[in-house]
Design a protein around this nucleic acid. Structure first.
Lengths: 245, 245
DNA sequence: TTGGTAAAGTTAACGCCTATAACTTTAGCC
DNA sequence: GGCTAAAGTTATAGGCGTTAACTTTACCAA
């Protein structure tokens, strides 16, 4: 390989070099996001980003190998931000019981989606993911930092014994879940919990996506009642007592 | 205006002219769809369609005013196709009770989505719909030909008295629903039915979208158990007795 | 039958985009 | 202070939507 390896550690001037590069990377993502938010996903182009940064498009290839890679980096960043928001919501009332905390986390998901519709669209409206999400290649995936927040709380609910998963689960499904069990959390989650987790996630996703993607614009100007109704259903499915929908 | 108005009716040679034009319009959509299915949404370009048809891109402007219009026409066409598939599923067993027919329709929705993932993505993964879906501008919209199929069956279920909508509905939501009530079906649907309709649609959408968009690839290779579980939950919410999930 | 006319389709061009190649400048390191 | 690699440049190729100006085609009416 090359004779000189970049001095990534240390405080020398290479450290500065490294820092400048990191700052450039951050500015690219910052600019890309601003374009996404202000003008939509189709405005996130290499040329536009470079233009905003006062440079030319080919220069960006020093930082990302392709436009696709850049958008993917932006996507990962947004997943982490969402995960942080959910975590923050979970920690809002640390003493509360898991059901209450889960409720807060779900509400935060909706809130984040509503206040960041373009970002939510980028993350969750992916038309047929063309590749590379093979079963088992989970948790490392940044897209599961946020899913873990939900799962953890469900595990806690399970510890309290509240969850009564339905009997007679499909054996084929259980076999599939087993395969990814330990990828998601440290401790051995019972398969039934993963079952309700996936089910509840689909339900939560449906309620939020349907609202944010505008599928209900024909009927509703405020989808909060729908969401609370859904949330009530989810918590009921988790064996959690809730107030009226 | 012009002195000669195209002879749209009649069997004269203008009728032939008209027929040729219709055929061209159909071929454009056919070609666009083939590109969508085989190479994804980004491949549906004016130039590619024209190329496949043995002509040049500007010629297409004789048929559609813009690329956006063309894609929108394709979208409408797909909505109608989906509506036809759901209707066909509904009529599969005309004598069955509404609950069974609704189940068939839901399964057909999933089946269509799985066998036409690119089309489903085009219809339902729309990132923030940039405009023009104002509340009340419903039923004429082709996107509600298929929703009507679901709603009609729910109305029938209501006639049988099976649906027990939750009490204490949010008044704000009821007021919103009232506004679109008669747009959707001929008869006066009680608002509570619209309530459960929207709720069930969100749930159904979540289950199907989560599967087709690949959000479950990390965990599942076969999402059918999840779907049947969801379907069970939906029918239960509609007060319909079902077999085990 | 023949001319007028409007539709259908063409080429040429503009400005946007991703991406590559070849070049210049800059800045760290020995 | 010179070597070297990174950062950023211009130039270029090819694809895209879209418009303008042109040619061809086919209908219809005098």
């Amino acid at each position: 390989m090359g004779t000189t390896v970049p001095n990534t550690s240390g405080t020398g001037s290479t450290g500065r070099r490294h820092r400048v590069r990191e700052e450039a990377l951050a500015e690219i993502l910052r600019t890309g996001r601003r374009l996404l938010v202000e003008e939509g996903p189709s405005a996130v182009t290499l040329r536009a980003i470079a233009r905003e940064m006062g440079m030319t498009a080919p220069g960006l290839y020093r930082y990302y190998a392709s436009h696709r890679d850049l958008v993917q980096a932006l996507t990962s960043h947004l997943y982490e931000e969402l995960a942080a928001a959910l975590t923050e919501a979970r920690e809002r009332r640390p003493a509360a019981e898991p059901g209450q905390r889960l409720r807060e986390v779900c509400r935060e998901l909706r809130h984040w989606a509503r206040t960041h519709p373009r970002e939510f669209g980028l993350l969750f409206a992916k038309p047929v993911t063309d590749a590379d999400t093979a079963p088992g290649a989970a948790a490392h995936d940044p897209s599961w930092r946020f899913g873990g927040v939900l799962l953890e709380l469900m595990v806690q609910l399970w510890h309290r014994g509240g969850i009564r998963p339905p009997a007679g689960l499909d054996p084929a499904w259980l076999a599939q879940l087993e395969e990814v069990r330990e990828h998601l959390t440290g401790e051995p989650v019972p398969l039934e919990i993963l079952y309700v987790f996936v089910s509840c996630w689909a339900r939560l996703y449906g309620a939020v996506a349907v609202e944010v993607f505008g599928h209900l614009d024909f009927a509703l100007t405020d989808a909060e009642p729908l969401f609370e109704h859904t949330l009530h259903g989810i918590l009921t499915e988790l064996g959690e007592p809730t107030d009226s929908p």
